[in-house]
């Protein structure tokens, strides 16, 4: 099979594209292949549905995270204090 007409993709790849789609990083052609895959694969349909739900939930929750650098410096300070207490 030449590369051009490779429409059928294995589940593993479909899931990968689905993950990418959640971050808007999949290409148009990939999306077509994913949707075609979803037509005949029930397991991946389920995964896609849950995945979209997860993305939606996280967007809705407006959960925020601390910067990694900030956390790191916090950790250092904390460890210093911890040692002072233990000694």
């Amino acid at each position: 099979m030449s590369k051009k007409i490779k429409v059928l993709i294995p589940c593993k790849e479909a899931n990968h594209v689905c993950d990418k789609t959640q971050y808007n990083e999949s290409s148009f052609w990939e999306k077509i292949k994913l949707n075609f895959h979803l037509l005949y694969c029930k397991a991946c349909r389920k995964y896609s549905k849950n995945n979209a739900k997860l993305t939606q939930a996280i967007n809705e929750s407006e959960v925020k995270c601390m910067d990694k650098k900030c956390k790191e410096s916090m950790k250092q300070e904390f460890e210093k204090a911890l040692q002072e207490i233990q000694h």
Binding site: D19, Y47, N50, N51, K53
Partner: peptide, 21 residues
């Protein structure tokens, strides 16, 4: 990274299904 993301998303979806959805 994508493998880690995939595992994390699967685990998160399962966990949230129990606790939230």
């Amino acid at each position: 990274l994508w493998v880690i993301i995939h595992r994390a998303r699967t685990a998160m979806a399962d966990c949230l299904k129990e606790n939230w959805f």
